[in-house]
Structure formats: C-alpha cells, structure tokens
Amino acid sequence: MRTSLKPTQLFAAACLAAGVLASGCQGNRSEAPPVHIWHNMDFQNKLDPQEEYDFFFAIDCPEEAAKIAELKAKAVAHGHNPDHLPLPEKTCRGRAMRNAPAGTVARGHLKNDDHLYKGRGPDGRLVDELPKGIVLSEELLNRGEERYNIYCQPCHDYAGTGQGIATRRGGGFAVQPANFHEDKFRAMPLGHFYDVIVNGKGTMLPYAAQIVSVEDRWAIAAWVRTLQQSRTTVAMGGK
C-alpha cells in the first residue's frame, strides 16, 4: 500500500527535524555563553577573584566616572531625568579585588629582613650567601631548577646563555637577555640575582609578582649559580 504524507504532516515533521538540527550536537563550538537550564543558585551575590564590580567604578575609573557625572549634571540642568540618560559604553570597569590602602601592611607581611627580602646586608650591599633558614640542599636546587625552567628559561634558555625561545621568535629581542656565563655575571654576588628577579634590570621587567615566594627566588638564584659553576673549569691539583 502506498501512503503519502499530507502537507500538514510534512510540515510538522520538517519543524521537528529543524528543531533538532538547530539545537546542534554535543561539543559544538559556540561563542554564546553556556545556557543554564536551571539557574538554582549558580549565580550568587558574591564576588570571585578578578571579577569586575561596578561598586568601585568611580575609584578605579576616575576619568570615565567624571565624564558620566558631567553628562548627568547637564541633563539635570536641562530638566531631564539623569537616570534615563543614554550613557556611552564603559571601556573601564571597577574591580572586586582591592589593593591594600596606601601606607598599610597586612599582618605577617612586614618585610623587614633585608637579607631575605632584598638580598642586601645591613650595609645595603648585595649579599653573597643564602639567608638564614634557606639551606643549600638537593631539594633547594631541584626547586630552583624547576622554577628557573618555568620563569627564566623562555628568555635565558635552559643553560643560561640568554638565547631562550622567546628571543628567537617574532623578530627577536632588540636587547639580548643576559648570558650568565659572562665574566661580569660570574663575579656577581648571589644577592644580585635575587635583586634582579625582584626589581628587574635594564629591559627585563620585575618578576616579583610572578615568583611570589621568596624561597623560590633564592632557589632560582642558587640554580643560576649552579649553572655558572657547571661551566667552570676546576684545575685538579695532584699531590
């Protein structure tokens, strides 16, 4: 028996198929944010690190806030409701995370040990030994090697010759990174490498924000010294 679909049935089937196809397959790429079918408490009235927060707009974006205030003042002067004003799109956002107020120190963050935190002795000169509490050990050097390979190797390369991958891509660096095996760096005290990590030097920006732990910075300094030693020829004295 031959059957043929009526136009209405055909239409219904086409709608169904279109609906299914339009909703795509699992894993399809999309630039639209994920759909939350049940919101439940997915989005709560709290702030995550690094989120934006309009409450601090006036503090974080003083210029834009001043512009908006000016527009609103004009609207009021012309007898318009300032809340119904079409405002320009914000290019700057307030931040949820706040800096500590100027001149304050968080508990436990008073960095008054110059040797540990600045690599300098009481006379203000760079020190040539590890601070108290950081012991030269296999673990320290392993840690130093690991951290060096994460943060320093991209420019200074694994061996410390200043020819890392970043210096060989995209046209290269205008100024080459330091080669630790040059005599002037071999003569530097250990504190010098700590100081450069924290404050940067020349075209190198400070890494204090990336290598937060002081122990890690000293471990890297010790590893730099190890790299230098690895290329030192030691005369074997015979008896």
């Binding site: 909703s23 795509g24 397959c25 699992q26 894993g27 399809n28 790429r29 999309s30 630039e31 639209a32 944010p33 994920p34 759909v35 939350h36 079918i37």
Partner: peptide, 14 residues
C-alpha cells in the same frame, strides 16, 4: 542529550 553540560557548556569559546 540536550540538558547535559556536555551540550550546554562544552565547546564554549568566547
């Protein structure tokens, strides 16, 4: 199939 995060979330690339 369609209410699973496999469908709603995977592949999100803003």
């Amino acid at each position: 199939y369609y209410w699973s995060p496999e469908f709603t979330d995977v592949g999100y690339r803003p």
